[in-house]
């Protein structure tokens, strides 16, 4: 305790400029991505859908690239708006596709989502190649580009504040939680219950797209987080959205914090970017979930 109280000025500075912002960013990103995953899963009624398996992340990447090329001077907010437009559109398209193939195999929709992401990626690479920024964007549609790997090491006071935009989005999803479930059951079903299908759908997509865009711009891609956290939470707590949503959010934040700490420790003094860490841990958990379901 006394150690904490007797911090030197330099230590205070580190805490204020780097440590605190980083922790806040971690918490916000963890909450944001997990909640987005949950919402997407509700709206497609498919627990294998998430920003990574619905093309949302790739759309964000496309948006960022477009912003880079078209508005190289743009500030943060403009970039967010630009990226947001792309992710929103892509999510709309994906939902439209998912809606048509719903009756099919639950496994099939994430496959289509991943392919959809691949396409957006290939378009991104096409332009990246023209402008010679392939290593930044990620080569051949086969890798997430350098700055797209989620990474908190660059988070400092003054460059992460956009993330606060997640808070209203997440709060809004909480208010609409049960409506998203109804929307997920289909247009006719919603109409039957007197719900405005279109507007609820749009609200959900706005929340998801905004959150993902902001996180993609400030942090980068964190694959599988939005998939694994909601699934693990619902394994533990069941499927009632209103009940599980807060837990999903908290669990997402904790999950991300733990991954961050591990990533900073294993190759100390360097650090493994969080996107990588979560990508591997989350990927493995996802595989286990898939195989377990099949048994």
């Amino acid at each position: 305790m006394t150690d904490i109280l007797s911090l030197s000025e330099e230590q205070w500075l580190v805490l204020r400029v780097s440590r605190v912002p980083r922790t806040i960013a971690l918490l916000l990103a963890g909450i944001g991505v997990s909640v987005c995953g949950l919402i997407l899963q509700q709206m497609t009624q498919n627990k294998f859908v998430s920003p990574a398996t619905a093309g949302t992340l790739d759309a964000a990447k496309f948006g960022i690239l477009a912003a880079l090329i078209l508005l190289p001077e743009a500030g943060g907010v403009l970039k967010v708006l630009f990226t947001f437009a792309f992710t929103f559109l892509a999510s709309l398209v994906f939902l439209k596709i998912a809606d048509r193939i719903r009756y099919r195999n639950i496994i099939f929709i994430p496959i289509v989502g991943l392919l959809f992401g691949g396409i957006l990626n290939s378009v991104t690479v096409f332009f990246a190649y023209q402008f010679n920024i392939v290593q930044d964007v990620g080569g051949s549609g086969e890798s997430y580009g350098a700055w797209m790997v989620g990474d908190f090491s660059g988070v400092l006071e003054g460059n992460y504040e956009l993330l606060y935009l997640c808070i209203p989005a997440v709060l809004l999803t909480y208010l609409y939680a049960s409506k998203f479930t109804v929307v997920g059951l289909g247009k006719d079903f919603s109409k039957n219950l007197g719900l405005n299908y279109r507007s609820v759908l749009n609200i959900g997509l706005v929340c998801v797209s905004l959150t993902i865009s902001v996180i993609a711009i400030t942090i980068g891609m964190i694959p599988f987080l939005g998939l694994v956290v909601p699934n693990l939470t619902s394994l533990l707590l069941g499927g009632n959205l209103k009940k599980t949503l807060p837990f999903t959010a908290i669990f997402g934040a904790i999950f991300l914090l733990i991954c961050d700490i591990i990533g900073r420790l294993i190759i100390f003094p360097f650090e493994v970017p969080i996107g990588m860490m979560v990508g591997v841990v989350g990927g493995v958990i996802f595989l286990v979930l898939l195989l377990k379901r099949n048994r």
């Binding site: 997430y144 790997v149 595989l287």
Partner: peptide, 18 residues
């Protein structure tokens, strides 16, 4: 789907190395 997920895992590894 498992092939795809493994693919994503490999991609993550690749991009880290890149």
């Amino acid at each position: 789907l498992i092939g795809l997920v493994l693919g994503t895992l490999f991609r993550t590894l690749s991009s880290f190395l890149q």
